[in-house]
Design a protein around this nucleic acid. Structure first.
Length: 273
DNA sequence: CGGCTTTGACCGGCGC
DNA sequence: GCGCCGGTCAAAGCCG
């Protein structure tokens, strides 16, 4: 390749132009990622809040007992990791070219069947814990109907031993105290570390999101109003600062596309609940 | 050779 | 009773 060749020079300029274009595109995507990550965190918090309300109602707690913890808890819990309950569902993003139905959750599994189901063109795989019959846990893994890069793993039962494989991939999940028959979702973390959620930001994004407002379950009116007041002062500055910090991260662009896709998919999966 | 996966057969629940 | 469907079994094949 002759660098003095005029056609070569044109190519270099074209590449530089494209590089600049991609960098600008990355900027936009970074911001989108931030927004979606916040929305996703809020959705999780809202789901947990709803479940908690139902449980509290069942146990006849008074409103006063709940009020003082409500706003703080709804945002803190979104990032807490909890054990898989007796019937739980995990959403896992796989590599786009990976056609296997393997979910690395820290346990070893033995596949004992595969079946094509009516509602999903992709096959469903059936796994038993490798410690069976000592451990009764089973799981089903199937690709998401809407997004075949997402694996949905449904767990049945509880392990009576420690994990014996690679550690799990998912970061956050709803509370573990759901009833035995309920299905909960555990959603994968983004490949990028996001700073701890600030309640004010999260609710600001919630309020500006039409898709979230379409949800069946809405956050409580009181907590929405309280956090909206704080939002006006802090949310914009915080997002700007955070986006700036991400720009400095050399690893960010590599993970960006996957993270955006992951957030979008997780959002839609959460809304399906 | 043992452990694991694949895959067609089989079984039981459910709706009509 | 029959057919459909999801879940499980088990024989055969694969692989380290």
């Amino acid at each position: 390749m002759d660098v003095f060749d005029p056609s070569c020079k044109e190519k270099v300029e074209a590449l530089q132009f494209e590089l600049e274009h991609r960098q600008k595109e990355n900027e936009k995507l970074r911001f989108m990622l931030e927004v979606m990550t916040r929305r996703f965190s809020i959705l999780q918090a809202e789901i947990q809040e709803t479940e908690e309300h139902q449980q509290k109602a069942a146990s006849n707690l008074t409103e006063g007992d709940q009020a003082c913890h409500e706003i703080l808890d709804s945002n803190k819990r979104a990032r807490f990791e909890v054990p898989i309950t007796k019937a739980s569902r995990i959403l896992v993003r796989s590599h786009s070219n990976d056609k296997s139905l393997i979910v690395k959750d820290g346990y070893q599994w033995r596949k004992y069947g595969q079946k094509v189901t009516k509602d999903n063109p992709s096959p469903r795989a059936y796994f038993r814990c490798s410690m069976a019959p000592n451990c009764p846990v089973k799981k089903k893994v199937q690709r998401c109907v809407d997004d075949d890069s997402v694996l949905v793993a449904t767990y049945d039962g509880e392990h009576n031993h420690e994990p014996n494989g690679s550690h799990g991939q998912y970061l956050c999940s709803p509370n573990s105290s759901s009833s035995k028959n309920s299905i909960t979702n555990h959603v994968l973390k983004c490949p990028i570390e996001i700073p701890p959620l600030q309640p004010s930001i999260a609710l600001d994004l919630t309020l500006s999101s039409p898709s979230i407002n379409q949800q069946k379950e809405k956050p409580s009116k009181r907590s929405m109003e309280d956090c909206d007041k704080i939002n006006n002062n802090h949310s914009k500055n915080y997002i700007e600062e955070y986006v700036a910090s991400l720009t400095k991260d050399p690893n960010f662009s590599v993970a960006l596309a996957a993270a955006v896709a992951s957030s979008m998919s997780d959002l839609s999966a959460s809304r399906m609940l």
